[in-house]
Amino acid sequence: MLERRARRLTETDMAIEEGDKLPNIELDTPNGGTVSLPDQAGRPFVLYFYPKDDTSGCTREAQDFSAMMPEFEALGAAVLGVSKDNAIKHQKFIAKYDLSVPLATDTEGKAMEVFDVWVEKQLYGKRYMGIDRSTFLFGPDGKLFRVWRRVRVPGHAVDVLESVKEMLAR
């Protein structure tokens, strides 16, 4: 299954790499609107993919980014979390934990395909498809500056903020 997915990405040359521009993708927001990724150019932009609303790691990650939103905003950076969860689940997740980090949904998996985060996983010997917790940092020029794959949540938001500072200092 993974070979088939990798071959498809190679054939269409869709997977994003460092130095690539923000892809032309629109995602739905919990309030019924949309967010266009190319519109995020002009400022640092953090795009993080997470497996599922209201699970321990995903909740902690969203809380960490929410707690640090004032620091990201002070640097002019935008942050957006994305999962396959629908708008209603996102609304409940945001309300339950009083999150300030913006969220979007990718129910069709278009962004997940381009960012190569829809992967085969294994839990207790069972294989399944799911989201690889990953973060992508784009510069103000709209180009991918840094990628984090298989993210461990503790300290991750701090690491991303430090990378934003490093990028802006160049």
Rank of each mutant, 00 (worst) to 15 (best):
residue 110 K to W: 05
residue 84 K to V: 12
residue 35 V to M: 13
residue 90 H to Q: 10
residue 119 V to A: 09
residue 17 E to Y: 11
residue 91 Q to Y: 00
residue 57 G to K: 06
residue 115 F to G: 06
residue 97 Y to W: 09
residue 32 G to A: 13
residue 45 F to L: 00
residue 67 A to M: 11
residue 71 E to Y: 08
residue 56 S to T: 13
residue 170 R to Q: 12
residue 4 R to S: 11
residue 165 K to T: 01
residue 8 R to S: 11
residue 49 F to V: 07
residue 103 L to S: 02
residue 166 E to W: 03
residue 33 G to C: 10
residue 162 E to L: 12
residue 31 N to R: 04
residue 75 L to N: 04
residue 115 F to K: 08
residue 119 V to R: 14
residue 84 K to Y: 00
residue 148 W to K: 05
residue 57 G to W: 04
residue 56 S to A: 13
residue 29 T to C: 06
residue 149 R to K: 08
residue 101 V to F: 06
residue 90 H to I: 03
residue 168 L to C: 07
residue 17 E to C: 14
residue 49 F to W: 03
residue 39 D to I: 06
residue 78 A to T: 10
residue 148 W to L: 15
residue 163 S to G: 11
residue 16 I to A: 13
residue 23 P to V: 11
residue 46 V to C: 01
residue 166 E to Q: 15
residue 131 I to K: 00
residue 128 Y to T: 06
residue 91 Q to P: 02
residue 71 E to W: 08
residue 18 E to I: 15
residue 165 K to W: 00
residue 78 A to Q: 09
residue 33 G to P: 03
residue 12 T to V: 07
residue 19 G to Y: 07
residue 28 D to I: 11
residue 162 E to H: 04
residue 67 A to T: 10
residue 22 L to S: 01
residue 163 S to P: 05
residue 32 G to E: 04
residue 5 R to L: 15
residue 53 D to H: 11
residue 15 A to P: 00
residue 15 A to G: 06
residue 90 H to R: 13
residue 150 R to F: 01
residue 102 P to R: 10
residue 102 P to F: 07
residue 32 G to H: 09
residue 48 Y to K: 07
residue 133 R to G: 09
residue 107 T to C: 07
residue 77 A to S: 10
residue 68 M to H: 01
residue 44 P to G: 03
residue 86 N to I: 00
residue 156 H to Y: 05
residue 164 V to Y: 05
residue 155 G to W: 07
residue 170 R to C: 13
residue 73 E to S: 08
residue 127 R to E: 14
residue 48 Y to W: 05
residue 108 E to F: 11
residue 105 T to W: 01
residue 34 T to Q: 12
residue 164 V to N: 04
residue 26 E to Q: 08
residue 71 E to K: 09
residue 76 G to S: 11
residue 143 K to E: 10
residue 152 R to A: 15
residue 73 E to C: 09
residue 98 D to K: 06
residue 143 K to T: 15
residue 14 M to Y: 07
residue 93 F to W: 07
residue 11 E to D: 12
residue 139 G to S: 09
residue 147 V to F: 02
residue 17 E to S: 15
residue 128 Y to D: 05
residue 53 D to E: 04
residue 59 T to L: 10
residue 124 Y to V: 09
residue 29 T to R: 09
residue 30 P to C: 15
residue 23 P to F: 14
residue 38 P to T: 09
residue 170 R to G: 15
residue 63 Q to L: 14
residue 63 Q to H: 02
residue 5 R to S: 15
residue 33 G to E: 04
residue 129 M to R: 03
residue 152 R to D: 07
residue 121 K to C: 12
residue 14 M to R: 12
residue 135 T to M: 10
residue 31 N to D: 13
residue 124 Y to F: 13
